[in-house]
């Protein structure tokens, strides 16, 4: 059977994103039906899920993009906390809030570029590079802050737009964080799937040597992808500190592997060159839904890790199955 003769339904079923979507739909329906008094779909719970879950999910989008490019970033949590510290220091120095946010995001971009340059210039696997910077940025944040938690209440500074921009409610209901999650997903989706740079990302992740032979500056592509991750970390640092009104040196701890998990669940290949923004978006959402849903279901939290593991394994196995079916369909 060739691709042209496949039905639309079969094509959809054989796309990587569809298997992730099926997992998400099953989880959402399961939690909605089985949670006591259907509290999973309670508006208050959905608001919590969308606002708090989106902070992590925004970063996961960048990590997924980078994985399509064939690289990892284990330093996202540490970039986040370092950016938070920069935010705190500038805020304490009474710098105007939007300039604080802009500088924080630029610092995030710079840290991403450093990750990229070390990886491509020194030819070090990004797993090792970002393992090193993960420890370094977290360590520096601890060193400079003395490991202390410090108040950083931005609401004390008169600003009409700053808090609504990062943590407000659109129409009084929809969390701003979820809005930004969608905006970033759409932007990165267009970049990945409808822009020439997206083709370069796929080509670089799929076969770096072949991409180079085609004239693609793979070092630049990778560095830009690292920078995008850094920008997203800086943005989330602003949103998180605006919401919590404090700096803590533990911010973002453990998010690095969760972000990788979200990307894998979303159908992104660990070898690079394969993945979609829709899949990564759904994967990130799936991780947030599992975390929230199990608590709402009153299931002891230790089960979360078991469910994460099962969902990751199912996603990888279903992706392998889909790849096999796609190969057969193209014969």
């Amino acid at each position: 059977m060739n691709d042209g003769r496949m039905s639309l339904g079969r094509k959809l079923l054989l796309s990587r994103s569809s298997s992730v979507l099926i997992v998400l739909v099953v989880l959402v329906l399961g939690f909605a039906i089985l949670s006591p008094e259907h509290r999973f779909v309670d508006p208050d719970n959905l608001k919590v899920l969308l606002s708090l879950g989106s902070e992590f999910s925004i970063i996961a989008l960048g990590v997924g993009l980078l994985m399509v490019c064939g690289e990892f970033d284990l330093s996202v949590g540490s970039i986040l906390v370092f950016c938070s510290f920069v935010f705190l220091r500038l805020f304490e120095a009474q710098v105007p809030l939007f300039f604080v946010a802009l500088t924080t995001i630029l610092v995030g971009a710079a840290l991403g570029i450093i990750n990229g340059l070390i990886t491509v210039r020194a030819q070090i696997p990004s797993f090792v590079t970002t393992l090193g910077t993960m420890m370094m940025w977290r360590g520096l944040a601890l060193l400079f802050s003395g490991g202390e938690q410090k108040g950083c209440d931005v609401s004390t500074v008169p600003s009409r737009y700053f808090l609504p921009f990062f943590t407000g409610r659109i129409g009084g209901v929809f969390p701003a964080q979820a809005f930004w999650f969608i905006v970033f997903a759409v932007f990165l989706g267009i970049l990945l799937h409808y822009h020439r740079f997206g083709n370069w990302i796929y080509a670089t992740g799929d076969n770096r040597d072949a991409a180079r032979a085609m004239g693609i500056n793979t070092d630049l592509v990778k560095t830009v992808c690292f920078m995008i991750v850094g920008v997203l970390c800086g943005f989330v640092a602003c949103a998180q500190i605006a919401r919590t009104a404090c700096f803590t040196s533990r911010a973002g701890e453990g998010w690095e592997l969760k972000a990788v998990a979200a990307s894998v669940v979303g159908g992104t290949s660990l070898r690079g060159g394969v993945g979609s923004m829709v899949g990564i978006f759904i994967g990130a959402l799936t991780i947030s839904v599992i975390e929230n849903g199990l608590v709402v279901m009153r299931i002891p939290y230790f089960w979360t890790y078991v469910v994460f593991g099962l969902v990751i394994l199912f996603s990888v196995l279903s992706s392998m199955y889909i790849e096999k079916k796609q190969r057969e369909a193209h014969r």
Partner: peptide, 23 residues
């Protein structure tokens, strides 16, 4: 006894809130 999920504040807040809504 609730496992609040470590020292990451957003995670802790998300779990405490979800617990309150579910209980």
């Amino acid at each position: 006894i609730i496992d609040a999920g470590g020292l990451e504040m957003t995670t802790v807040e998300a779990r405490e809130t979800a617990y309150l809504l579910a209980h």
